[in-house]
Design a protein around this nucleic acid. Structure first.
Lengths: 332, 332
DNA sequence: AACAGCATTGTTAACGTGTGCATTTCTATG
DNA sequence: CATAGAAATGCACACGTTAACAATGCTGTT
């Protein structure tokens, strides 16, 4: 059986309360007694029973990092950057619980007893009921990646729309007018924001494109490949394709080269996200950088502050997205 | 304040003990009383206080998924597959805590009170002291990815050496004799296993290669690019390069194309891991598939069994690696 | 020496839940 | 109706820790 504060108390000849005071830096203890107790605790390798502390303090020391889903539409790079960003902030002071919201049959297991706070990495509105539930339960909550108006939460959102707008403008500036789009997973807010940015830029430049230039993907390599294959069959083939994430761009480029065509000589391709591999594609991909790691870090910092101060306020912080010009777009 | 079993007991007109029996399917309760209690608990949205249960039952319901490090040498795909594999097994019965072992200043926070079990995804021997510590503390432990002899643990290991051997044999069968290797992160056991497989195949075929054909990388895109740049400068340039993971292979292919050379016409490139992007590279990468998700799933299943039965035995399960032939190797 | 105030320590209960043993209730049998 | 045994329920304590309030000890002042 493990060492408890009662074992230490016996050896130190004090009450268990005094041991607790010593180990928690209470002002209500003589410094010499404190050091003596700490030495004994150290020599016995005492560690607190966190369950007991959690019970008394009404704290769990768990933080949730919840993704709308982990099953599909969530790329490895996205998951990786989110975990790294949050982990850099919380270190080993909290347990980071990683989950897909769609894994919950019922949310009632998620409550203040089990989570000190939750970061929702929101990909679509399908997690809206969860966000409302968590807010209603007054669980400290931060929502990343998607703006949420109906709930008083802190929000950190990459500016996907202006990123997509800027990228499409760049394609226009390079002379392209036949610009197609391979969209992301239907229902995801990022899909809509990127499409809106694309459309806004076309409209600004008085460009109209046929309906066939809108093709759906699923944010993965295969769907990018399939979507590009469709676009390449069109009688009026686009000169440039905006792929709404880098995974789909890689699949699209593959579809192009399989037909004996080349990027960007025969058709230009752009992506979105700036994953690690994007700079190493052949050709190096022109894309938009989304700072997922920084956004996750900022969200975690805010959540810790919220937990500490018991205070939060509605805010939306837009994270700058950045056009990254490489080699996959040709000037025509 | 939340609903406790005492609140339910009051409404049901029974003791809290009876409520506990009802909610835990004890045989020591009248079925009608049980249903009545369950109905009340349901209508009050009762959930157990897990801290209290953990304290009484000496259980934490936390499982650790610990990587040797999350800082460098751990690719997004690797992390993603491991988390997915484990998560598929544990669902929401346990909290999955994801950490880098090198994040711990001291291991003493890791104990049976805080973790019901731990899966170590071991990348190098630098986690050996942790594995020994956890085993000594009798924390249920499963080690994935690296064989461990000094400790009585269950081990699930992909057969990297024979994967690398088979890949190198394939290169030899395709006529290559000037075969270089871009190694992984120094000190990682996977680096050694893949190098050993490569050397074993060369030896089998009586092939000797210059020392300059061994170049170090760091399991990332940049180091693959840099290592291939070195190999391309050699007066006696290799005809084929075995990159010890797919990220480095992508970087290496980029270095080739940047020099106006092409893969596989001018130089063949092979990888290791079969990440999702590998099939979509231009050319599609010949590589070795390592079943990280399956291995993680098997490890999690074994760990849950161990926690349940309090019984475990030393075992090493080798997971089959598979040569995946695509387009990046030319026959000469 | 007596008293007041402050510092230090201890007693007791709380947190929410599970369980061993005691008590009560119910049922079957003679 | 009385008795025995089984079923059902409750009492009291435990788990390890924190904290409110009580008690004790020490120090300084008059």
């Amino acid at each position: 059986m493990s060492v408890t504060i009662k074992d230490i108390a016996k050896l130190a000849g004090v009450s268990h309360t005094t041991v607790s005071r010593a180990l928690n830096d209470s002002p209500l203890i003589n410094p010499e007694t404190k050091e003596r107790i700490k030495a004994i605790a150290g020599s016995m390798n005492y560690t607190p029973n966190y369950s007991a502390r959690s019970l008394v303090l009404d704290r769990s020391y768990n933080l949730g990092l919840f993704f709308t889903t982990l099953h599909t539409g969530t790329s490895a790079g996205f998951l990786y950057e989110a975990i790294k960003g949050v982990n850099d902030v919380i270190k080993d002071d909290y347990n980071l619980i990683v989950r897909g919201i769609d894994d919950y049959k019922s949310f009632h297991k998620v409550n203040r007893k089990n989570f000190d706070g939750i970061i929702v990495m929101s990909q679509s509105e399908s997690d809206q009921s969860f966000i409302e539930y968590a807010s209603d339960k007054e669980i400290p909550l931060v929502v990343l990646n998607r703006p949420v108006e109906s709930v008083q939460v802190m929000n950190f959102v990459p500016d996907d729309q202006s990123g997509a707008y800027r990228l499409t403008e760049y394609l226009v500036q390079q002379g392209h007018r036949h610009i197609a789009i391979i969209e992301g997973k239907q229902g995801f807010k990022s899909t809509q924001a990127r499409r809106d940015g694309y459309r806004e830029a076309l409209r600004k430049h008085g460009i109209t494109v046929p309906e066939a230039y809108y093709v759906s993907g699923n944010y993965d390599l295969e769907s990018g490949h399939a979507a590009m294959s469709k676009l390449l069959e069109l009688p009026d083939r686009p000169t440039a394709v905006f792929c709404c994430n880098d995974d789909m761009a890689l699949g699209a480029v593959k579809a192009v080269t399989e037909r004996g065509l080349s990027v960007p000589e025969d058709i230009s391709v752009a992506g979105f996200d700036d994953h690690l591999f994007s700079a190493f594609m052949s050709p190096a991909l022109t894309t938009v950088r989304r700072p997922i790691e920084e956004l996750s870090r900022a969200g975690a910092e805010k959540l810790l502050k919220f937990i500490e101060t018991k205070h939060s306020e509605k805010s939306v912080v837009l994270f700058h997205t950045e056009l990254v010009i490489r080699d996959s777009v040709k000037s025509i």
